[in-house]
Design a binder for these strands. Structure first.
Lengths: 316, 316
DNA sequence: TATCTTCATAACAATCCGTTATATTGTTTT
DNA sequence: AAAACAATATAACGGATTGTTATGAAGATA
């Protein structure tokens, strides 16, 4: 005996409200529709669902039991409708983001938390990678957004990218570093201290190499490599080591007062932090909202970072 | 955004089984029906529910969430179908029985328990009353069955009654009662002992009066009245009192070896224990099954009781 | 008894459903 | 890389069901 689910829901509405008219109103239907449904149900079930000739309407035990199941369905239906609604306005769903480790750790994680104060039902799945990995992950639909530095020249190929921060690197060290005592540290001084190399494969590593070349240096003391941002910072805290970092990452740590940037200008990489999306794929609304949130967040940061850069590096 | 419940269920079936074809099979539908449902759902929801161009079919997060709600509905629907099925074969539902206290306590309660070994999901609601109450309760649809002694002459009036045991009364006493030592106790001896009167309003009370009249007795010592069967038995256990009881009730207590019947024949009431139903009303299948169970149970008891009567009362 | 509310029925239009037949697409095999 | 295979999407159609409004019947209430 297969029972039409809609019928059960209508039965539940009638039992719940105590009348055909009210039940129909609850479902936004006309009374005769529900009335007919009930007679059809009774005919199919072959047993009375309501006690006849009594008003207010009273269900039989069977009718009551069936109505309970209908109520379950009604609730599930409501929840499903709400889910769709909240998904469409970007208030629920999953956002899968990938990015370069330092940016994610230093800047994005905090933004995720902030985003969820207004979008508590959105889940964020984060993963790490560099440009080529992220591009592949985007194309394979393993992530929805990538946040990473890309060469300004890189273009198209099905990906849309939105620049959110110009690429500026600095030499980072702990706040007690001896080089900070000099008014104008010279690049040659940099070679006197141990260095932390950025993770293999990272753009920063390439930046470090370019930096050395610009000094004409052939060798520096690499003493530590491979650590995540937290490892690097903790290492820096404990030694007079140096490393190359995006300025924004150092900026994000300014409140901790543990690391800072040396007042030395080094070449800008031809790169910018950007948000990458697939241009063709349909994205969940929550993804677009998150991307916009990140973009707006960086927009706010931009001049703060600029001013910080001028004061720290140029000493203005 | 209202969503058709049937659509959600089909979605759930597809997600659960991992394919349109299998999902359709699970629901007993053809594949194109389900396929079309999915496209309609996607169009209405406005968001993709499955990742396009990938097989085996993989749902999007939204599709997965919606499918979970659908699964709830599917389960509820299955349960409802099972419920109807078991109700129709009398394996679930409610049976509301009413009856005279002594019979219910001595005989019917045990039958209820036995009935439920084969019908564990049937609930039995028991209540007490005498004929006129029970008849009213039946007519008001407060009970489904009444089990009580009725005059053979009583007839019709919308009620069907089925005789299950002839009315035989005995004089009951404890097994150590002194009258049991006499080979042939005479009616006059009965007046020497204290009596328990059956509850006011009960047919037994009328029987007691008739009994007295037949002895020409004008007065007996009523020492106790108003108790339920258990009270009466416990009273009898502790005193050499006498009372009138249906023989079947005494019979039901034979295993306890605490009360028995005096070997004295007293007039049969023109009554029989019967099952009463409304003749017009639709009854739940479980009710009919229970009535039949009770009838069959008494049928089995009948000759046992007869033999017991002969051996106890006639000393055969 | 009269009135009022609520439920049941009738009639009709529109939608939706489920079917079979067929095309398309993604995957696997050679 | 082409071909074979399997699964899904589309098309077309008959029929069932759903929704509506208008109206009649039956309890409840005064």
């Amino acid at each position: 005996m297969k029972i039409d689910e809609r019928h059960l829901i209508q039965l539940a509405a009638v039992v719940k409200t105590g009348g055909v008219t009210e039940g129909a109103a609850l479902l936004g239907l006309a009374q005769p529709a529900v009335s007919r449904t009930l007679s059809m149900l009774e005919k199919r079930v072959g047993e009375p669902l309501f006690i006849k000739g009594r008003r207010p309407l009273r269900p039989t035990p069977l009718g009551l039991s069936l109505a309970e199941h209908g109520l379950v369905m009604l609730a599930a239906s409501r929840k499903a409708s709400d889910l769709v609604e909240s998904f469409r306005i970007g208030k629920s769903g999953v956002v899968r983001i990938g990015g370069t480790p330092f940016f994610m750790d230093a800047l994005i994680a905090r933004l995720c938390a902030e985003f969820q104060t207004s979008h508590p039902d959105v889940r964020i799945d984060q993963s790490y990678g560099y440009f080529s990995d992220l591009r592949a992950a985007l194309r394979a639909d393993q992530i929805d957004l990538a946040i990473c530095p890309i060469d300004i020249l890189d273009e198209g190929s099905g990906l849309e990218f939105q620049q959110i921060l110009p690429g500026r690197n600095v030499v980072a060290c702990r706040v007690t570093h001896p080089l900070l005592l000099k008014r104008r540290p010279q690049p040659s001084h940099l070679l006197d201290y141990p260095w932390i190399a950025p993770p293999p494969g990272s753009p920063l590593l390439a930046d470090l190499r370019a930096l050395l070349l610009s000094f004409g240096a052939t060798e520096i003391k690499i003493r530590y490599t491979g650590g995540s941002l937290m490892s690097v910072i903790n290492y820096l805290k404990s030694a007079d080591a140096l490393t190359v970092m995006p300025h924004s990452v150092v900026f994000a740590q300014r409140k901790e007062k543990t690391i800072t940037a040396l007042p030395i200008t080094i070449p800008h990489p031809e790169r910018a932090l950007a948000i990458l999306k697939r241009i063709d794929a349909p994205r969940a609304p929550a993804v677009d909202q998150f991307a916009e949130f990140v973009r707006a967040g960086f927009q706010d940061l931009r001049h703060l970072i600029k001013r910080h850069e001028e004061s720290v590096i140029w000493g203005l």
